[in-house]
């Protein structure tokens, strides 16, 4: 039954699990920091950073990519790389001066910079 698989010690799994739970507590903790201490964009950035670390832990250890072949690395990475290409759509919204549909945050940044 055992094949060529890399068998990770169970201890690693439990450690990762505990780490994930701790990071979850951290995310919820950040939520309760008042806005005057941590403004919303910064809070979002922290929450996303924590989420990325959590995802990396899951991808790396639960999904065994750290033990995987180069090809596995490549295919695990390419999805996220292409997602960032897709996010290039947002450049349109951040640089579209004239024709913003509404007074959005991007629009605001744009108009602030164009006035001052």
């Amino acid at each position: 039954m055992s094949g060529h698989a890399h068998v990770t010690p169970v201890k690693v799994y439990f450690t990762v699990y505990v780490l994930l739970l701790m990071l979850l507590v951290a995310t919820v903790g950040v939520y309760f920091i008042p806005h005057n201490i941590l403004n919303p964009p910064a809070a979002l950035a922290v929450a996303m950073a924590i989420a990325i670390v959590k995802a990396a832990l899951v991808v790396g250890f639960f999904m065994q990519v750290v033990y995987g072949s180069k090809l596995t690395w490549l295919w695990a990475a390419i999805g996220f790389v292409w997602l960032s290409l897709l996010a290039g759509i947002m450049i349109d919204y951040s640089t579209r001066h004239m024709n913003m549909p509404d007074g959005s945050a991007f629009d605001r940044m744009q108009s602030q910079s164009s006035v001052e």
Partner: peptide, 18 residues
């Protein structure tokens, strides 16, 4: 100047949306 502290230029699109 807007309530949330940001500002914008009152152009056609802004007025229409408002």
């Amino acid at each position: 100047m807007k309530k949330d502290g940001t500002s914008t230029i009152a152009d056609d699109t802004y007025i229409r949306n408002s």
